[in-house]
């Protein structure tokens, strides 16, 4: 298999697994955040912040995926 194909698979796995984990985490955090906001609307800001905190892992996955794709396209050298 050509290296480009392997890189594409790698990029897919990187973002796919990161997004899956992040999604599961965010689902739980968002459920708790909604509960907290329903109890008291003053919790809205902090709830958003905490629920969105988990997203960062997906961003890391995206960065890796982009680096792999750009490496494959010859834009960057590692």
């Amino acid at each position: 298999m050509a290296i480009e194909g392997l890189l594409a698979i790698g990029a897919g796995i990187a973002i796919g697994v990161a997004a899956l984990g992040s999604g599961i985490g965010q689902g739980k955090a968002a459920a708790a955040a909604i509960g907290a906001t329903a109890e008291d609307t003053k919790n809205f800001g902090r709830s958003i912040a905490l629920a969105a905190l988990v997203e960062t892992q997906a961003i890391y996955g995206l960065v890796i995926a982009l680096l792999l794709i750009l490496y494959g396209a010859g834009v960057i050298a590692i």
Binding site: I48, A49, A52, E55
Partner: peptide, 19 residues
């Protein structure tokens, strides 16, 4: 909207804001 909000609440506010 949500992500702009988050960047302010988490990354920016956490440096100085106690609220």
């Amino acid at each position: 909207f949500i992500n702009s909000l988050r960047l302010h609440y988490v990354e920016f506010f956490s440096r100085f804001f106690e609220g």
